[in-house]
Amino acid sequence: WVPDSEAPNCMNCQVKFTFTKRRHHCRACGKVFCGVCCNRKCKLQYLEKEARVCVVCYETIS
């Protein structure tokens, strides 16, 4: 899990986070992404309901 303080930009597209461009943690890899790069949901083994995942993890999992 990457702390918010260590991620000033999206770890995929590099967009800078602001008050309106929020950070989202991928529940699969723990990296920090913008809403566009972390907009998929899928079922993870260790969680009961679907969770937010990044586009890279989504392609790997599904």
Rank of each mutant, 00 (worst) to 15 (best):
R52V: 06
S62V: 15
R40L: 08
C38Q: 03
V53F: 02
V32E: 06
K43I: 08
M11L: 10
V15W: 05
M11A: 14
C34V: 01
C10E: 01
N9L: 13
V55M: 10
K49S: 10
V2N: 04
V32K: 04
D4P: 03
H24V: 06
K49P: 05
L44Q: 11
C26S: 01
C37N: 00
V55E: 13
R40E: 15
C26Y: 01
V56H: 11
H25Y: 02
Q45K: 06
V55P: 09
R52D: 05
E59N: 10
H25C: 05
R52Q: 03
R52M: 12
Y46A: 14
T20I: 09
M11R: 10
E6K: 09
N12S: 09
T60G: 11
C54R: 01
W1T: 08
Q45N: 11
K31I: 04
R22V: 06
G30E: 10
Q14G: 09
G35Y: 11
V2Y: 08
E50K: 11
F33I: 06
S5D: 08
A51N: 09
T60Y: 06
R22Q: 07
K16M: 14
Y58F: 06
F19T: 15
V36H: 11
V56L: 13
C34A: 02
W1D: 00
N12A: 14
Q45F: 08
F17E: 01
T60L: 07
R40W: 11
C26N: 02
G35Q: 13
N12H: 10
T18A: 03
C10I: 00
R40C: 13
K31T: 02
C42S: 13
D4M: 12
V36I: 10
T20W: 09
Q14V: 13
N9M: 09
I61N: 13
Q45H: 09
C26A: 00
R52G: 04
N39H: 07
C37D: 02
V2F: 09
K31G: 12
C37H: 04
S62L: 11
E50V: 12
K16T: 14
C37K: 02
K49A: 09
K49W: 07
C26M: 01
F17A: 01
C38N: 02
Y46E: 15
F19L: 13
T60M: 07
R22W: 06
Q45C: 05
R40V: 09
H25G: 07
N39W: 11
I61A: 14
C34Y: 02
T18L: 05
S5Q: 13
P8D: 11
G30Y: 09
H25P: 03
T20V: 08
K31V: 02
G35S: 11
C13P: 00
K21C: 08
C37F: 05
E59T: 11
L47R: 07
C29Q: 00
P8F: 15
